[in-house]
Every structure is written in structure tokens, then in C-alpha cells.
Amino acid sequence: MPGPEQVAAAIEVLDPGALTTVQDTGRPGWAHLGVPRAGALDEPALRLANRLVGNQEAAAGLETTLTGAVVRLTRATSFAVTGARCDVHVDGRAVGWGATHAVRPGAEVRVGPAHEGVRTYVAVAGGIDLPSVLGSRSADLLSGLGPAPLRVGDLLPLGPPRRARHGSEAVPHPPRGILRIRLGPRADWFTTAALEALDGATYTVSAESNRIGLRLAGPVVARARDEELPTEGMVLGAVQVPPSGQPIVFLNDHPTTGGYPVVAVVVAEDLPVCAQARPGSSLTLRVVR
């Protein structure tokens, strides 16, 4: 057996849960070639996890989905868990969420199912050091760029740690069930009544939601114009309305262009609300200027 100094620093995936992907802050800047931005859906949570372990904020970590994940850390290192709150165990011992933990070589880190929210982030000192594609290590589930969703036995190399940092910082309260939106760019494609009703309307988060879009079920957003919209560029947080009238909020893996009118765009600060909205939960829209 090799000694610990010969074992490469890595994350070994023991159980990826429902869906665990590698995410950093994505690959903006390539939309003109049809390349989605990808990146952590709850970006402030990933940045916080990275700060807690002394990484650059944009370093690559893990994004789990609802059910958590189990990994082994091959070398002595430190890690932090943020985003959706969950139980965290190291070698069977409960440790705190939202704090930095030092671990021995070979430690098993168990990230439990989310108590609230959807996506939990795990940052490990040094960050995940897979080859980057177009400047990012993020998995893009629409185009397939970047590392595939993780499977049992995957080994993710870690970069050199920057500096030791142990401690914690104030972690944000879980986002509430309110989503602020700004009308436009195609609000004029909808009836005045539909636009007025949008402010305060409550929708249920559909189980069909994923990293591409948050699908909402509730009051129909009625169109005032019937013609087809020529395909146009789409932004993160665009609230697109297909013919069903049931809105879809475009999340990080969204297509770069789309052919349905965008009634509004989510306020950037509220994107984590979308990232953490559980299927079956309610979201109330608030129109802001």
C-alpha cells in the first residue's frame, strides 16, 4: 500500500446521490457560439464555501441535489458545506454545516439530504482541479460540456491548498419563498391584466425543474400577441412563457437563445431562491422597478 504522501490529493465519490456535479462560476462569454454559461446555481453559497476553506471564490466544488452525497478525501485537508442545510458527518461523527473542518487522510464525508432548499455545496481546500473547458470546470447538463455528473468511484483531483483557514462566517438565512422580477423585455407581448396579476401571483415549483429551468405551475400568463417571436438571446433568470402560459425561469444551463417571449427577468440577488426552490413548494412573484 502506498504511504499517504504518495496518494494524490483527491475527492473519491462513494455515493453521488440523485445528482452531484462539479461547478465553479461557469463559462460566461461564449453565448455567441451557443455555449451555455453553466456554473453553480446558488453562486453565493459556492463562493462562501470556497472562502471558508481559503480557496479563490470561483474555485470548483461539488453541487449536490436534494439527497446529498458521500465522498472520501484521500489526503489530510479541510472542507466546508454550504447552500441547502443538511446534516454533515465525518467518519460517522456529526459536524457543523457552514463551517470549516480539518480531516485526516481517507476521511469519509457524508453530506445528508437537504432539510430545506435543494442544492448543497462542498468546497475542499485547493479546489477541484479537473481540466477546464472554455475557462470553466462546470458541468453543463444542456450541452454536455465539462465533467459529466459524478458516478460512484470517480476521483476528482484537488489543487494545492492556498492557506489554512479555520473558522466560520455569518451564513445567509435560507431564501424565503419570494421571487422579485423586473418586467421586460417582452412584457408588451402579454395582456395588461396578466402583467398586473403577475405581481403577487403564487406558483408551485414543478418537479420537472432542473439546472436548465425552474418550471412554475399556476396562473396562466396570457399573451396579447399570437405570432411567433423570432429566436432571440436569453439571459440567466429570464422568465420565459411558452404557449401553455406556465412560466419557466431560465437557470445556469439554459439555452443561449429561445423563441418564446420573456415577460420578466429575476432580480440577480434572488437567483439563489430559484436554486433552492423545492419541487412542490410555493413561490410568490413580486414585480419591482
Binding site: 460566461p28 462569454g29 453565448a31 455567441h32 423570432p230 432571440e232 438571446g233 436569453m234 439571459v235 437563445t257
Partner: peptide, 15 residues
């Protein structure tokens, strides 16, 4: 501007 995205009848400026 981070992204310039031409499409059928528009150019999007994002970021």
C-alpha cells in the same frame, strides 16, 4: 459587455 448574442432579429448585450 461580457456576452454579445446575435439572433434572428436582435442582438443581446449581457453582463
Amino acid at each position: 459587455v461580457t456576452d454579445l448574442v446575435p439572433a434572428a432579429r436582435t442582438v443581446l448585450l449581457d453582463g
